[in-house]
Simulated scan of single mutants.
Amino acid sequence: MTVPAYEPISDDDLYRHSSQFRIWSLTPEELESKRRAVYERACRNVPGAIAKDKNVPETSIEVLSYEEEQQLIQYYSTKLLLLGDGLQQPTQVSATALSYFRKFYTVHSTMEHHPKDIFSTCIFLAAKVENNLIKIDYLCKVLRKNQKEILDCEFLVLQSLSFTLLVHNGYRPMRGLLLDIQAVIPHLAPPEALEPLRLKTKKAIIDSFFSDVQFHFTPPQIALAALMTADETLTMEYLKKKFGHDGIELLRKDNPVIDTKGVSDLQMLLEIIEECRKMIQSVPQVPDQMGKATDRKLYYLYNPDKQAKRKLARAEAPEVSPAPSAPSAPTAPASTGSPEPKRQKMDD
Rank of each mutant, 00 (worst) to 15 (best):
E130K: 10
L82I: 08
L312Q: 14
G247Y: 05
N255A: 07
H113G: 02
S25D: 07
S25I: 00
V129G: 04
G244V: 10
A293V: 13
V93E: 01
D12N: 12
F215G: 06
L178S: 04
L177G: 00
K103V: 03
L83H: 04
K342R: 12
H168I: 02
R102G: 00
I134E: 01
V257T: 15
L165D: 00
I273L: 05
L158N: 01
Y39A: 04
P190T: 11
E130V: 05
A5Y: 12
A313M: 08
R343C: 09
A230C: 09
P304F: 03
S25G: 03
Q71C: 12
P256Q: 09
N55R: 09
N146P: 05
I280S: 03
K306M: 14
M228Y: 08
R296A: 14
C153W: 06
S18C: 07
P256W: 08
D117C: 03
M228H: 08
Y238N: 01
A226Y: 06
S19H: 05
E67A: 13
D305A: 15
P287I: 09
E237M: 11
S94W: 01
A334E: 14
S321I: 14
H168W: 12
E232D: 13
Y300D: 03
L197P: 05
H216K: 10
K103Y: 02
R44Q: 14
S120I: 09
E340N: 11
H187G: 11
F104D: 03
